[in-house]
Amino acid sequence: MVDADALLQSLVADRDIREGLARFARVIDAKDWAALDTVFAADLTFDYGLGERSGIAALSETMRMFLDGCGPTQHLIGSISITTDGSGAESRAYVQARHQRRDDPTGDVFDSNGEYTDRWEHRAQGWRIVRRDVRWQTHSGDRAILSASFD
């Protein structure tokens, strides 16, 4: 017999986590660093391929290091898989991130493709990512577009 309450909770968690991933893409593309806490827990740990770091301030610093110097970006998130358990949830999602050079709307781009593996917990503010691991699979285009952030 199906536990209707458990099924409903699982479906709501699935919807909320998918919304959280979509919100992340919009937050990062808007470079709205102050809104990272609408997706991530303050005490998160993460690894974007540069080693493990902790805290929302460190996440903001990492995002800004790569994205403040480039122009518009578009993060497309798809092929989402979510598994809920008694203590939270795990999502896996593919990401395609396109980065454009600042002040050159028809110029070169830099694309990164990979996968986010996120651990989610339900907090007072709602579902938040408490752990993110990123595995980059391919990069193409002009990497210097991101390097502009380091000038």
Rank of each mutant, 00 (worst) to 15 (best):
T106H: 12
W127V: 03
R132C: 06
H122T: 06
R128A: 09
R132K: 09
G114I: 01
S112N: 10
P105F: 04
T117V: 13
G107L: 08
D108C: 03
R128K: 10
D104P: 05
E115R: 09
R102D: 11
I129T: 11
D133M: 14
H122R: 08
R123S: 12
R119C: 00
V130L: 03
E115Y: 03
T117C: 05
G126C: 13
H122E: 05
R131W: 10
T117F: 06
Y116R: 06
W127K: 10
G114P: 06
E115G: 07
D104K: 00
D104W: 00
D111I: 01
I129L: 14
W127F: 11
G114E: 01
V130R: 02
F110C: 04
G107W: 01
D111P: 04
D103Y: 04
R119L: 15
D133P: 08
G107Y: 09
V109G: 00
A124V: 14
N113H: 15
R128F: 06
N113T: 15
G107N: 03
H122L: 05
H122K: 07
E115L: 15
D133S: 12
G114S: 04
R102F: 07
R102H: 12
Q125E: 11
V109A: 11
A124E: 15
D104F: 03
W127H: 09
D103R: 07
R131H: 13
N113Y: 15
T106N: 06
